[in-house]
Amino acid sequence: MEISFASKRVLVTGAAKGIGRALAKRLASYGAEVVAVSRSKEGLDSLAAEMKNIKTICVDLSDWDATRKAIKSAGAIDCLVNNAAYATPLESFLDAKPESFDMSFAVNVKAVINVSQVVVEGMIQRKKGGSVVNLSSQASQAALPQHTIYCGTKGALDMVSRVMALELGPHNIRVNCVNPTVVMTDMGRVGWADPEKANSMLAKIPLGRFAEVDEVVDAVIYLLSDKASMINGVTLPIDGGFLAT
C-alpha cells in the first residue's frame, strides 16, 4: 500500500523527540511539508538539520495565548497530530497533587483543544477537509496504579476526540486517536524503567512485549492518510492485546 503526503502540510506537536520526532521524519520522507512544534529549541534545530522539508515552531503548549499565536503563524495545515504530552509524576491517588493535575491537563487535554481549534478553523475556511490524530494511551481505558491523573487526561482526550469527530465530520475533517501501550521513549522510561514493574505489565500483554516507536508511527500515518478516508472517531489500541485480556 503506497502512501504519499506530497503537497500536504502536516503539523506535529511534541516533535523534538520520541514518537513525535520519528513521525515528523517519516512524514517528511513521504513528501509532506512538516511543521514541527516543541518547547525544545535544541531538539527542533537538530530535527530541521536532518530533514530539509521540516519547519519548526518553538512554543510552550501550556501557554494558551502564546500557543494560539504560534500555531496561527504556521499557515494552512492539512493534517494535524497532537502528540505532545506531559509525563505526570507517579503518584498514588491519595498523593495526587494539584500542580500535577494542572500541568497534565494543560498539556494533555487543554493544549489539544487549543491547537486543534486554530488548525481546524483554517481547514473549515478552505473547505478541503483534513485529518487529525490525537496520541492517547491504553491508560484511557485501563486503570494503572499511580497513574490517576495521567489516566484521567487520556480518558478525557478520548472523549474530546469523539466530540471533535462528531462535530467536524460534516466538514470532511476526520478525528481519530491511537492508544499505545508502553513505548520505551524517554517518557515511557519514567514509568516503566523498573524491571519489576515492567514485568508486571508485560505479563498482561499477549504479545509479550512493549510497542516500538515505528509501530505507533505506522498507525498514525495510516489514519492521517486518504487510505483511512472512512475512519472517523475511533480509538485504536496499539497494545499487543492488553485491552483484550
Rank of each mutant, 00 (worst) to 15 (best):
G152N: 05
S116Q: 07
N53Q: 08
I149W: 00
E91D: 08
A96S: 15
G241M: 03
V120N: 10
W64N: 11
T148K: 00
A106F: 01
N179A: 15
Q138A: 13
M164T: 15
L61R: 05
F105Q: 06
L243Q: 08
G31I: 06
K17V: 10
P170E: 09
V10N: 07
P170Q: 08
T88N: 13
I113G: 15
Q146P: 01
V35A: 05
N179R: 07
K127V: 01
N114H: 11
Y86Q: 03
D158Y: 07
R26V: 05
N53A: 15
N172E: 12
A203H: 04
V178Y: 05
I57T: 09
L90V: 11
P145K: 11
V175S: 09
V183I: 15
A203F: 06
C151V: 02
G240F: 01
G233C: 08
S4Q: 08
D226P: 02
K128Y: 10
S140F: 00
R209T: 01
T185E: 12
A87F: 02
V107I: 14
K127M: 03
T185Q: 13
A84L: 06
K128A: 14
P98E: 15
A143M: 05
D194Y: 11
I113Y: 15
Y30H: 12
A143L: 04
P195L: 00
G233F: 04
A228V: 00
L44I: 06
K110V: 01
E42T: 15
V59Y: 00
Y150V: 02
D214H: 14
K72C: 14
F5H: 10
D102C: 07
L202T: 08
P145W: 01
P206N: 06
D78F: 09
R126A: 07
P98A: 14
G20S: 06
V118R: 04
S100C: 03
V217S: 04
D194C: 03
R39A: 11
K69D: 12
R189C: 11
A244W: 00
